[in-house]
Design a protein around this nucleic acid. Structure first.
Length: 587
RNA sequence: CGGGGCGUAGCGCAGUUCGGUAGCGCGCUUGGUUUGGGUCCAAGAAGUCGUCGGUUCAAAUCCGGCCGCCCCGACCA
């Protein structure tokens, strides 16, 4: 491609609303332009890079038996009503009516469409297993779509769906994806970790997220350096401390003026926070038979720990959670800051963390401003409807597997894999006849990778103060020829010859620009190999060869440059491919 | 949805306090100059000042509504 013809423009300054490095550089280098909040156009350079990422995904999907196809972006609402997600999913689902007044859905994902196809096409165990995938646009109207290109509303995703007759088959396909995903990310130059994750709106049995570790990530991960335990903080479990045994002491009401927080309370009474019980008031939306009801929830966790809302939502099977308003708290007879499960109205749903029953003689509120109870004991003084693990893992907590301290880190989710099981096939009656002639629901898995987000993460990882530094596998072109005065004729010939040799070339043929401008553009765009052809290099005996990733320059004679470029491309490719190795999926 | 900020030429910004009908840098066009790290000089083109309404002789500027974008929080595969 000739730069004089390339559609796009480099910018000296990034738009003011770009915050992340990847966002700034991708806009400045002419890879993307923003159209609206979370909505981007992909320009030719960006499109080439995304196509490369998508082709890597195709190769790895095909290698595990995937068949590429294409499913629609606009769906009739009926299928989403069948699975219940029409009712369960909130405003992030794009909904509209067609000209005939029918409810329509903009695809957030494609389980419903796949399952509809499955029930029409799969009739026999002989047709299973199968793996289908497509690379298609999704719309998710995130309430907050920030983070440049990392978090967008309209995006392209590779999503695959496995179909099996038995659970062993699902496990095989799940494991195949686990490996394939590592291959994809590593081939794109990105090192990721796989963490256990919440199944969220997908439902299902088991899930992993593939996380690119970076401080800009919006997810918090919990890692154990000792045994390798990894999990999203939403679901991370840990070994809870064993409280000292004590004989229950009599309940005692004490004045604790001005101690609305656990820290104040512990300081006032001169006790550790771990000897207190924290009351958290939430309102849960619970869906029953397509009807949403709001339910007040009184949560008790130990004072030194934080409530994990995902765990709470899962324990309650709640669709949504929000903090309760003060009026709602007062309405159940509690007092913000002094809330207590002791003596609360009977109809209030009390949920406690499983550490609480083992923790004797805690300090809890007295449901009266300025007063707390000493020696509150679960079972004797109050009872809960649900006892479950409800608290969030923190830095330094003990690993559930090996007991060593956990560490937290931020990450961006670049892919995920889900064992859906029969959640969709049962809801939509997608069954097959097994060997015994009995109808059984198809066992499904779903597996996604966002191609634009992956590109943004690669950009986030590979850059310096001058611009992008693409891995050879993702770079829009392999070679960038910079023609300078006295070198245009030779550069033209080199451009033609390299292309004939199968090399992908971006050729800066712009005659009116100074050398500095062209070098800066080349650094900004970040193509791995740069060849400079000018009067000076020719006088020195050839063209100047330079890698974007290195400061070294070398003059290569014209009759050797094509070989040199091909060798170097092969070397860069080999370097990346060396990272593609088998991985163990932990149980 | 709550809190904060912003909206003036393709990009970055000034002008708004104190109303008088728009300016700077980059980019773009033309001519010259320079020619290996964002040359220099000159002449140009380009903006319903987000939008609607109000106040006023007069609004980018004051007042109100709406829209959009960004950040923080809640939310979220």
């Amino acid at each position: 491609m000739r730069m004089s013809y390339l559609f796009g423009q480099t910018l000296r300054e990034a738009p003011a609303d770009a915050e992340l490095t990847s966002h700034k550089l991708l806009v400045r280098a002419g890879f993307v332009r923003q159209l609206g909040a979370g909505i981007f156009s992909v320009l030719p350079l960006g499109h080439r890079s995304i196509t490369k990422i998508e082709n890597i995904m195709r190769e790895e999907m095909n290698a595990i038996g995937g068949q590429e196809m294409m499913m629609p972006v606009v769906h009739p609402a009926e299928i989403w009503k069948e699975t219940g997600r029409w009712y369960e999913v909130g405003p992030e689902m794009g909904r509209f009516k067609d000209a005939g007044g029918r409810d329509m859905v903009l695809a957030m994902t494609h389980e419903e469409v796949v399952t509809d196809l499955v029930r029409n096409i799969i009739h026999s165990y002989r047709q299973l297993p199968a793996l289908i995938y497509h690379i298609q646009t999704k719309w998710r109207d995130e309430v907050r779509s920030r983070g440049g290109l990392i978090r967008v509303r309209e995006f392209t995703m590779k999503d695959s769906y496995s179909l099996d007759a038995d659970w062993e088959g699902l496990d095989r396909q799940y494991r195949a994806h686990y490996q394939a995903y590592f291959n994809i990310f590593r081939r794109a130059g990105l090192e990721v970790i796989a963490v256990k994750s919440d199944v969220g709106m997908m439902g299902g049995k088991e899930a992993h997220e593939f996380m690119y570790l970076t401080p800009i990530g919006e997810d918090t991960l919990v890692l154990c350096d000792s045994c390798g335990y990894t999990a999203n903080r939403q679901v991370a479990v840990f070994r809870k401390p064993e409280p000292q045994e004590e004989a229950p002491l009599p309940l005692e009401k004490v004045a604790t003026p001005g101690t609305k927080t656990i820290a104040d309370l512990a300081a006032f009474l001169n006790i550790p926070e771990s000897k207190t019980a924290k009351a958290v008031f939430m309102v849960a939306t619970i869906s029953e038979e397509q009807k949403d009801t709001e339910k007040f929830v009184f949560v008790v966790v130990r004072g030194d720990m934080e409530l994990n809302e995902t765990k709470l939502a899962n324990a309650l099977k709640a669709k949504a959670l929000r903090p309760a308003h003060e009026e709602e708290i007062r309405a159940i007879g509690a007092s913000p800051g002094y809330g207590s499960p002791v003596g609360i109205k009977d109809d209030v749903l009390v949920v406690v963390d499983d550490l609480i029953p083992r923790s004797p003689n805690l300090v809890a509120g007295a449901n009266e401003d300025g007063y707390h109870y000493l020696n509150v004991n679960y079972g004797r003084d109050y009872k809960a409807a649900i006892v479950a693990d409800l608290v969030a893992a923190e830095d330094g907590y003990a690993c559930v597997q090996c007991g060593e301290p956990l560490r937290t880190s931020r990450g961006v989710e670049v892919g995920n894999i889900f064992k859906l099981g029969t959640r969709y096939s049962e809801a939509m009656n997608a069954t097959f006849l097994d060997k015994d002639g009995k109808p059984k629901p198809v066992i499904m898995g779903s597996y996604g990778i966002g191609s634009g987000r992956l590109l943004a993460c690669v950009a986030e990882e590979y850059n310096d103060e001058y611009g992008l530094k693409w891995p050879i596998t993702v770079a829009p072109y392999q070679v960038h020829i910079v023609a300078l005065k006295g070198g245009f004729d030779v550069a033209e010939q080199l451009y033609t010859d390299l292309q004939k040799a199968g090399v992908e070339v971006l050729y800066d043929d712009r005659e009116e620009l100074s050398a500095g401008v062209k070098f800066n553009d080349a650094d900004l765009i970040g193509i791995p190999i740069r060849l400079t052809v000018g009067g000076r290099s020719l006088k020195q005996g050839g063209v100047e060869f330079k890698l974007r990733s290195s400061d070294e320059r070398e003059i290569v004679p014209l009759d050797q440059i094509i070989d040199k470029v091909q060798e170097e491309i092969a070397r860069l490719l080999a370097e990346i491919n060396a990272r593609v190795v088998p991985v163990e999926m932990p149980d």
